[in-house]
Design a protein around this nucleic acid. Structure first.
Lengths: 254, 254
DNA sequence: ATTTGACCCTGACGTTTCGTCATAGTTTAA
DNA sequence: TTAAACTATGACGAAACGTCAGGGTCAAAT
């Protein structure tokens, strides 16, 4: 016979929950001490595990109570009925997600139209000016090789190309921004960061870890980057820097 | 200016709901009659429709309250965050439906083969019978591929092979059972669980995480399994289920 | 002018599953 | 014997209203 704390440790349910289950008659301990302490038998433990199992499936405690107290209860029918309920809930959720998505595209679409920034203007001269400027800074930091490589690769890019690149980039940032709550070290975010690096390597230059790390810093120290990135989401640039650092740390360890 | 019943008819919300929204400060009518009747303006109606819209998307009333009372509220961010929540809920629901399906197929399929325990009887015909039956259930769940694979692989197994498999399996269970006190999340146990999965994949079919998780549930819900497993050690089946779930959760994160 | 019926109001409890105190008795080890 | 650790029983809170209960208000019919 086990006391509440032991049962709690064994099964992972809280003591309060045990009280509650006793209270509503879902799981009444087989025994009781002189002082009125609840004493649970091995059988009680098994019952509890059954209860937890059905609870995981989303059954209400009242339903579970019926199921375990009526051994001849038709579980199959109950399960089928339950499944229908779950399916309906799922449908509703999907509907909700759809609605959110629709609203979201309208909202973000509106914002993007409003703002004209360097990545939205595909004027070739502007891009070149940007490249030049970036080139100078980059030379100081990473030497001339990377700069030359970038220039060589981007020279032949058409407006269409830039537009595509911008689209991909926006998409990636978008993806990351909605996952900010998962934390910069989350698997999802780290995967996206990896994609981002690949994307740079594909379109601009071989983005080594050192460079990548520096790029992350740039997002916070250079207000042009900061502003451009944070337009997706406030605080995204700092978040990106953290995530990129974590990414680099981990990659170095491999 | 409209009274509660009119608003109720116009929008479909109950009068009590209007009371409630007033009470929590979500929708306070613009006017009031001498007798203290709530009088809603056209603007109020619009607000209410906004509220209903966000409610449909599954926002909590408190969140909605913030959104409509703070006109510069970042709806985009809120929506994105909300979407994540919805997606998580959906995942959980799908998991639950999966579990229900597993239980259902094994409950319905179990009637005819009640007394035949696949692991204890090495009679070839019995095994084949089991395989057939399992095949039907499994087909519903995982499609025909896994079933065919199992059949293909096990067709040539001799009694000796089955005996060996059983031996290995017993050994593994034994190993796990003596480590139960370390907890299902301990490294030792998790390693053994990993081996177990490999073992299944090697001898029967490609055991995906979904399948593996379902298998864990089976150990608790299907008494044939429970009995067979618990003969090594009381409570082992439940322990296994927990360990397998933990294993799957962790593997999914990788 | 009064009655009647439709309509409105403000509580307040119930629902669901426990978390979180608060207060108080019990057991156990030092 | 005393302090630490454990247990017990309430009771409030949370979310979003449904559902009475008890009691005013308004407009039309008597």
């Amino acid at each position: 016979m086990y006391k509440v704390k032991e049962v709690s440790h064994m099964t992972g349910v809280s003591i309060r929950t045990l009280h509650h289950y006793d209270h509503i008659g879902l799981l009444i301990p087989d025994g009781q001490s002189d002082a009125g302490y609840r004493l649970y038998s091995d059988e009680n433990i098994e019952q509890l595990q059954q209860i937890l199992f059905f609870k995981e499936m989303g059954f209400h405690l009242a339903e579970i109570k019926d199921m375990i107290h009526h051994p001849d209860f038709d579980r199959t029918t109950a399960l089928k009925a339950h499944k229908q309920i779950l399916l309906k809930k799922k449908e509703r959720l999907e509907q909700m997600i759809q609605t959110v998505n629709t609203t979201l595209t309208h909202l973000t679409g509106g914002i993007q139209m409003e703002k004209k920034d360097m990545f939205n203007g595909f004027d070739q001269t502007e891009i070149e000016a940007y490249q030049k400027q970036y080139a100078e800074e980059a030379k100081e930091k990473y030497g001339t090789k990377i700069v030359e490589e970038t220039e060589k690769r981007t020279k032949s890019y058409s407006n269409q190309d830039w537009s595509n690149i911008q689209g991909e980039m926006d998409h990636l940032f978008q993806q990351i921004s909605v996952r900010m709550d998962l934390g910069p070290d989350s698997e999802e975010v780290q995967n996206l960061i990896g994609k981002y690096r690949q994307y740079i390597t594909k379109n601009f230059y071989d983005c080594t870890l050192d460079i990548f790390r520096g790029l992350g810093d740039l997002y916070v120290t250079d207000e042009r980057f900061t502003a451009n990135i944070d337009r997706h989401q406030a605080g995204l640039s700092e978040f990106l820097r953290q995530a990129m650092h974590i990414y680099c740390d981990r990659e170095m360890q491999k």
